[in-house]
Amino acid sequence: MIEPLERAVKELKRLPGVGQKSAERLIFHLLTRDEEEVQRLSEAIQDLSTRVNRCEVCGNFSIGEKCDICSDHNRDRSKICVVSRPWDITKIESTQKYDGLYHVLGGLINPIEDVAPEDLSIGKLINRAKEEEVSEVILALEPKTEGESTSMFLVKKLRPLGVEISQIAQGIPVGRDLEFTDKATLGKAFEGRRGV
């Protein structure tokens, strides 16, 4: 393989889920497209590193110092929803059920992977809860062991501040049969049942 192709394949292979064959297929496809199209893709990728920052308030992806959500004065500033990764925000926004602010932790506490509370944006969250007009913090962390551990740590830190702390519901996904639901999920669904 000639040098430019080899280099492009090598770089693509660094991406998650892209192996030698997938990388080669993508490169050969790009070589069949016109120059303008390839240039657009190249610029779009370039922009990721030159134009996309992390919001200095919440840690979301942003163009300027603050993300669109933190800059939007129509959002409910009394609520902060805590997520582990920036792309969780996109998912929650797609529901159109929440109009408050966000805070990205940047991961979950996990001794197995050597991730300690100091590695996450927890101090910043505590400061926001102290300084801003926040009345509720909503924990939207993954319902797995590391997520539970992180949620409990946050509850311990936030409770003395007098803010209301809530956690998103856990249980059976919409449209799924009870028959195929594992007992841990079903148990959580029963614990979190509500009056109708």
Binding site: I109, N110, P111, I112, T145, E146, E148, S149, M152, F153, K156
Partner: peptide
Amino acid sequence: RSGDAIDVGL
């Protein structure tokens, strides 16, 4: 349900 117990387990 206990952060300390989870940490010790992990």
